[in-house]
């Protein structure tokens, strides 16, 4: 199987500060990959590069067939293939739940209002919020808002979903409902890359775990590496994470 995500020696600096110092890994179609690591290890930057919110400065990156180091990349095509969900939800506050989800299909895919509505109702039901279609974001809990954000991405039928610490702003009860939606997506065969602090979730759902440290992949493998890490740094990271 050919990888849907392929990073080779990816480098990225902000000014003099080198954040990614040669990152390489692959993710196959249908896999769930969890990127873990301390804050500042570059994991969120790596994820943002995959949707070209940041441009890479060295190495190569191929996402769903798009070459990201290519200056003439078709960004619209890339973003039709890749969905991303952020820690801070970023729903559009002036639109209802249904309108939030319908906006991109209507503007980007130019589907009719009725068609967009049908798609929206389906994906919103999927994240368990069909009774909130006409609510505004600020009337929802954080967990509900995050589920709407996931639905909003799903409405574009992406081939790859990126999750950037999507539960970090939520308290534990709300975290569970968001993870449940993500787990369901994983079982349906969605290719997913998540930057996460939820070790339990990574252990349970991830096919591949990538431990980043100081701008590099320090250790990577199946989720078994979370039980039997081969480097002392990962072992220490896991024991620190489980204390919290």
């Amino acid at each position: 199987m050919s990888p849907i995500v392929e990073l080779k020696d990816v480098r990225k600096s902000f000014g003099n500060l080198e954040i990614l110092k040669g990152v390489s890994f692959e993710v196959n179609r249908g896999e769930v990959a969890a990127i873990i690591g301390q804050s500042g290890s570059g994991k969120s930057t790596a994820l943002r590069c995959m949707d070209r919110l940041e441009t890479i400065q060295g190495g190569s990156m191929v996402i769903c067939g798009h070459r990201l180091e290519d200056a003439k990349i078709d960004l619209k095509a890339l973003r039709r293939d890749v969905g991303i969900v952020f820690q801070s939800y970023n729903l559009f506050p002036h639109l209802t739940v249904a309108e939030n989800v319908m906006l991109a299909p209507r503007l980007v895919k130019a589907v009719s209002r009725a068609e967009a509505r049908t798609v929206a109702e389906a994906v919103i039901a999927k994240v368990g919020l069909h009774e909130k279609l006409e609510a505004y974001p600020e009337q929802l809990s954080g967990g509900q808002q995050q589920r709407v954000a996931i639905a909003r991405s799903l409405a574009m039928e992406p081939k790859l979903m990126l999750f950037d610490e999507v539960t970090s702003a939520l308290d534990p009860q709300l975290t569970g409902e968001v993870l449940k939606v993500m787990e369901q997506l994983a079982t349906e065969g969605m290719t997913m890359i998540l930057v996460t602090h939820e070790m339990g979730f990574a252990r349970k759902v991830a096919d591949r775990v990538i431990y980043m440290r100081d701008g590099k992949v320090h250790e990577a493998g199946s989720s078994d590496i979370l039980r039997t890490p081969s480097t002392p740094e990962l072992a220490e990271f896991i024991s620190e994470a489980s204390e919290h």
């Binding site: 919110l53 619209k76 973003r79 970023n90 991109a104 503007l107």
Partner: peptide, 16 residues
């Protein structure tokens, strides 16, 4: 700025 980014990531063009 995250509002810009969220819309950008959905593939919505600059004018829209």
């Amino acid at each position: 700025k995250p509002q810009w980014e969220a819309a950008e990531c959905l593939g919505i063009g600059r004018w829209h």
